[in-house]
């Protein structure tokens, strides 16, 4: 049994995680078998997370029932105002989208905006406090695949790393294993933004001292690598620092997404499926070339 366990761990450990793959790799038959077993086990065990989450759902249900009429009316007014604002922005967005499509046609490049999204609910949190992972209630039967980007209303949330029939694990951008190719929306300078684990903070490391980055700059996805669609806000630079004697700068970034508060997220279908569970520097590898050409 110990030998079988060691064998399984070795094979499972060799499966590239969705967040650190530099090239799109194809799993071996053994790795595929392990991935399928994991997927089956996740399907089998996801009801446990649903039961664990039941008290919170029940308390939400009770507070909904207990809400008084005046607070509901106030909430409705707020939502109506928000809807009006969003409709106005939508009109502007539609015009810009059409203009963007026309310009891309003139330049002969492909359209880049993702076409479909799936709304998913968070039904569980990784019990390991050192890993920033969440369980969503959507899986293969809803069209979710490994490597898809996950966003909320404010910004990038993470990416899907494991999928079962009806649920999927998402690695958050704050996980220490996660990195995402980004650019400074003010200057367009490309960088890699990494998680540091636990706390809601990200870091831009090893920036050349001459890099034009200021506190307050908005960092957005660069689209390189193809995993995260271009132009989604990831965070805001909060502070800059340098190590004495080092020619490089580092910057702290506060994530835009409400990573610990949000209950629903959007899974973005962004083209061709990624064949493997990654570890996400994914995006800075060979697959960059094609995407850069698209840009």
């Amino acid at each position: 049994m110990l030998v079988a366990s060691l064998g399984l761990m070795t094979i499972d450990g060799s499966v590239p995680r969705a967040d650190k793959v530099s090239t799109v790799s194809v799993p071996t038959p053994l790795q595929s078998a392990v991935i399928n077993v994991r997927s089956g086990l996740l399907t089998l065990t996801s009801p446990v997370f649903a039961i664990a989450e039941a008290p919170y759902r029940f308390s939400g249900f009770v507070s909904d029932i207990g809400a008084d009429r005046s607070s509901l009316l106030r909430q409705r007014d707020q939502l109506e105002s928000q809807l009006l604002l969003l409709q106005q922005q939508q009109q502007r967005f539609t015009y810009l989208q059409q203009e963007n499509t026309r310009l891309r046609q003139l330049l002969g490049s492909k359209a880049q905006l993702p076409s479909e999204v799936t709304i998913a609910e968070i039904i569980g949190v990784s019990p390991n406090p050192q890993r920033a992972e969440l369980l969503l209630d959507k899986g293969q039967q809803d069209g979710v695949i490994r490597g898809q980007a996950v966003v909320d209303a404010q910004g990038v949330f993470g990416q899907v790393i494991e999928v079962s029939t009806d649920s999927s694990w998402v690695l958050l951008i704050t996980d220490r294993d996660h990195a995402i190719p980004v650019r400074n929306s003010r200057t367009g300078v490309r960088m890699i933004l990494g998680g540091i684990g636990g706390a809601e903070a990200l870091v831009l490391e090893d920036l050349p001292a001459s890099t034009d980055v200021l506190s307050g700059d908005v960092i957005e996805t660069s689209g390189l690598g193809g995993r995260f669609p271009v132009g989604y806000p990831v965070g805001v630079v909060t502070s800059l620092g340098s190590v004495q004697g080092s020619p490089y700068l580092s910057a702290s970034v506060k994530p835009s997404a409400a990573l610990s508060k949000v209950g629903h997220v959007l899974i973005i279908a962004n083209g061709s499926p990624q064949p493997v569970r990654s570890k996400a520097l994914s995006d800075s590898g060979d697959s960059l070339t094609n995407k850069q050409a698209d840009n």
């Binding site: 366990s5 094979i11 499972d12 390991n128």
Partner: peptide, 29 residues
């Protein structure tokens, strides 16, 4: 009993999203 315990470990691996075989080895020991 040992076989059942090892299989239970496999299910817990799936539950905790840990490497397959890890909890099986711990449980069996």
């Amino acid at each position: 009993g040992m076989a059942l315990v090892w299989l239970s470990g496999l299910v817990v691996d799936g539950l905790l999203a840990e490497p397959l075989g890890l909890n099986g080895a711990i449980f069996a020991t």
